[in-house]
Design a protein around this nucleic acid. Structure first.
Length: 816
RNA sequence: GCGAGAGUGGCGGAAUUGGCAGACGCACUAGACUUAGGAUCUAGCGCCUAUGGCAUGUGGGUUCAACUCCCACCUCUCGCACCA
């Protein structure tokens, strides 16, 4: 019989789909296992990155079913987003119809891969049944003060014509289209994620062994906790104080000036109360100049500054230090003001040299000596010098002592600062969740009433690609009644960042049809937390951070039980799919279409190759010869099984010992590799087993062969589900292989009776023997001493030391 | 600059309480079968000056024994980057 993968795969896919075999059962008595993958954006067609991600999660799902779990493996569509709107402009098609037709295509591609989804839980974020709950949750969070509106300097992408969250700016460019991000002063909606910064850090403790370390590091880095001191410098003329944040308060005696961000409000006061017209002009000009710089320019260009003409009083010495404006001080970090210690900070050093400011060394590298190069900053910890009462003590101790002194003087305190900023969630786009807020002249800003949700996206919209939010031009949408006074009012014309959708979709999967709530406590209680999440590392500080934030908010709102405080207990990052040295992408022209491959070699070959070519977390180099080889293996496996099943007379009566050993070894090795996600070595092991069976099949009984291939079918079913189901049926089995039980092995039969034993002389390999297991040292030594080949090495030499490792080697150390 | 990870044949990769380096596959070579072979099967396949020697990025160290442990360095990939 031929291995006809097209027929086989179609047959089983239809079977699985029609019978809804892979339904996750709510509240089932079996232990639950929730396998999640990052749901796709329906961009048109599946790419290899998706295929790899979903193959891995499918293998995990199927393996857990074989282990006896009640598995939930859902799929859905991250269906809102800008590309649909761009397509609308380009092809004059509504974003909805473009999105829905993409979903149809991609759904058929997923089915063709044989993924074991629970299709009844399929969700689509652009559907009102889903985004209604975005609005509902938004209002809940608004009521708790976790959503607020403020005017501030925000990131703006001119190409996408919308604002962006901080997380969506990469190296000063838009994450989606690579356009330079500019700053705009706008009033926008924010999620108060900074309220949870400490909890987000604390939560890392819970997942530190089950998430890739680098993802946690990236998040920690992003949240950017730093411990230091806050100190006050008074400007007497203005009757104002400048608060500075520093992590190096031990250097405070070396302060020779202050630098503040030009955006600070105190600068207005300086301008108003200034005694020098020239300096005012300088300040205003400098401010305007900095305003025009993009974030990228501001961070890559040289340090620029401007003297304000004011002096501040040092909190400890009462000395007067000049106050400068500087482009290198960020208004949004710390207090937006720094004490400059040029002797011990590189940035301050550069700035001081450029502006001819004083440099005062107050830290020495040695306790009783000073031997530093005064032409550069010394930024390490050391011992204090020229620091009055603090001279002689270490940096670390000084930080504590000096802060305590500041506290006593009521001029400072210990302080923690975070880099994380609130999540800007409004977008000036159409294809997203409308923000359910109403603007009334009398009553101000109020949320839409719960009973009026969902607030639907209107259809009377033109996609011109010009100007601001398309919703502004929808007559049916813009005008409404105030939920309080019922007078004429206006709607918010922005939509939500699509990361809002993906911040809780894993909860909706637990209860996808609920019409009363986004999800019930009962169902999330059963399914949550996600046991295994699989996806790429690119979402470390976006989706994965936002989801953790949402989860904590939902726990606080009482919508989710606190046992699921961390939504994803285990996270696996698959590597990228590479071709010709770089990531597959349209612009590189190195795309391989999954459908072409399925057509040529079948889904099982695809799955096999993707798992075999590299360990899951490493990048995978695509090469078509490799998938051909996998297809060849499936042919070999199929033919072997066919031959054993259909030829009754060519076998021996008794099973061979070799076969039993190999059989038990194979089971043990494969089971243990599944636990490590080491799919490439599982496949290698099964290839060895098949090679072995081809050689051994005439030396053993048919029953022993049948048992072996049955077990191989079960073991390999998660990886190559179609062909194994087919063989299972050929074997005369009537059960569904996907729900079989994993085979067991007999530990006493795992090892071979004979071992290859190595003889070393002075650590060098000189001889190998095939000897029986567990042979004692004396016996081995006897063989060695009689061995003609070894005689030249040993004759007349004194053996100083014998190192014997059972079943492995004997190393003889001799005197030369 | 800071943080993380990785360096093994022509290629993808195996091997970790330290114990045969190169499993498995690809590519390649030779042969068998065949009208044919891009099917299948059999055998070979790290390098060299070959009964031996050298090999896991480089240089040291620990050890009877190091891809594996320690120290220093080099290269590459990823993330962050004026964060005070």
């Amino acid at each position: 019989m031929e291995y006809n993968f097209k027929k086989i795969e179609k047959k089983w896919q239809d079977n699985w789909f029609e019978k809804k075999l892979f339904k996750g059962i709510d509240g089932d008595k079996k232990k639950k296992y929730y396998v999640l993958e990052m749901f796709p954006y329906p961009s048109g067609r599946l790419h290899m990155g998706h295929v790899r991600n979903y193959t891995i999660s499918d293998v995990i799902s199927r393996y857990k079913r074989l282990e006896g779990y009640n598995v939930m493996h859902p799929i859905g569509w991250d269906a809102f987003g800008l590309p649909a709107e761009n397509a609308a402009i380009k092809y004059k098609k509504h974003p909805r119809s473009w999105t829905l037709s993409n979903i149809e295509t991609m759904k058929s591609q997923l089915k063709a891969m044989g993924f074991s989804y629970d299709w009844d839980r399929e969700i689509m974020t652009c559907h009102e049944n889903y985004y209604k709950w975005n609005q509902w949750l938004f209002i809940k969070m608004y009521e708790k003060g976790l959503v607020y509106r403020k005017k501030s300097v925000v990131n703006w992408c001119d190409n996408c014509e919308t604002v962006l969250a901080n997380e969506q700016v990469e190296n000063g460019k838009c994450w989606r289209c690579d356009t330079d991000v500019i700053q705009k002063d706008l009033e926008q909606w924010f999620f108060r994620i900074t309220k949870y910064e400490k909890e987000l850090l604390l939560g890392h403790e819970m997942i530190k062994d089950t998430w890739p370390k680098r993802i946690i590091d990236m998040q920690k880095n992003w949240i950017g906790e730093s411990e230091g001191t806050i100190a006050e410098f008074e400007i007497e003329e203005l009757n104002e104080k400048i608060e500075i944040f520093t992590t190096r308060v031990d250097t405070i005696m070396g302060v020779t000036y202050l630098v503040i961000a030009p955006e600070l409000k105190i600068v207005d006061k300086m301008i108003e109360n200034h005694h020098s017209k020239d300096l005012v002009k300088n300040i205003i000009e400098f401010r305007e100049k900095i305003k025009k710089q993009s974030e990228l320019d501001r961070s890559s260009k040289e340090k620029e500054g401007c003297f304000t003409g004011f002096f501040a009083k040092h909190p400890l010495t009462s000395e007067k230090v000049p106050v400068w404006l500087g482009n290198y001080v960020l208004a949004t970090y710390g207090t937006g003001a720094v004490m400059a210690v040029p002797a011990h900070d590189e940035r301050d050093f550069d700035f001081a040299i450029k502006n001819k400011l004083e440099i005062k060394f107050v830290i020495s590298n040695e306790k009783d000596n000073f031997s530093l190069d005064k032409h550069k900053a010394f930024t390490e910890d050391g011992y204090l010098i020229n620091s009055g009462e603090f001279s002689g003590i270490s940096s670390e101790f000084a930080r504590k002592k000096i802060t305590e002194k500041l506290i006593a003087l009521k001029k400072g305190n210990f302080m923690k600062t975070f880099r994380l900023k609130d999540w800007l969630l409004s977008r000036q786009r159409y294809w997203g969740t409308p923000i359910p807020m109403v603007y009334c002249e009398k009553c101000g800003i109020n949320p839409v009433k719960y009973e009026d949700l969902p607030l639907l996206l209107p259809d009377d919209v033109n996609f011109t690609g010009k100007g601001d939010s398309p919703l502004k031009y929808s007559k049916s949408f813009m005008h409404t009644k105030c939920p309080k006074c019922n007078g004429d009012a206006l709607r918010d014309t922005d939509t939500m960042d699509t990361f809002v959708d993906s911040s809780w979709y894993f909860l909706r999967y637990c209860d996808p049809k609920n019409v009363d709530l986004p999800f019930s406590l009962e169902k999330t209680n059963y399914w949550m937390p996600v046991d295994q999440y699989v996806g790429g590392a690119e979402h470390a500080c976006m989706h994965l951070l936002y989801s953790r934030f949402f989860e904590k908010v939902l726990v606080d709102l009482g919508l989710v039980d606190k046992k699921a405080n961390e939504p994803f207990i285990r996270l696996l990052n698959q590597g990228m799919v590479i071709k010709d040295g770089s990531k597959m992408s349209k612009s590189k022209g190195n795309i391989v279409d999954p459908n072409e491959m399925i057509d040529k070699y079948g889904a099982d070959s695809m799955r096999l190759f993707i798992l075999f070519a590299a360990p899951v977390s490493k990048d995978l180099e695509w090469n078509e010869e490799g998938i051909e080889g996998c297809n060849r293996f499936l042919n070999r496996f199929f033919r072997l099984c066919d031959e054993i099943i259909n030829n009754q007379n060519i076998f021996k009566e008794n099973s061979s010992k070799n076969l039993e050993q190999m059989h038990n070894f194979t089971i043990k090795k494969i089971l243990s590799d599944y636990k490590d996600f080491s799919y490439n070595t599982i496949i290698a092991t099964s290839m060895e087993a098949v090679n072995f069976l081809y050689k051994e099949k005439f030396n053993t009984s048919r029953e022993s062969l049948l048992k072996f291939i049955k077990d191989l079918c079960i073991l390999l079913n998660p990886i190559i589900p179609h062909v194994t189901e087919e063989i299972w049926q050929m074997l005369g089995e009537t059960t569904v292989l996907s729900f079989e039980t994993l085979p067991q092995f007999d530990e006493s039969k795992v090892e071979k009776d004979e071992v290859i034993f190595v003889i070393q002389i002075n650590g060098k390999l000189r001889q190998k023997y095939n000897i029986s297991r567990d042979m004692a040292e004396e016996k081995v030594l006897k063989i060695v001493l009689q061995d003609e080949k070894l005689k030249p090495y040993l004759a007349g030499k004194e053996i100083l030391k014998k190192v014997f490792v059972k079943n492995k080697l004997l190393n003889l150390v001799i005197k030369n």
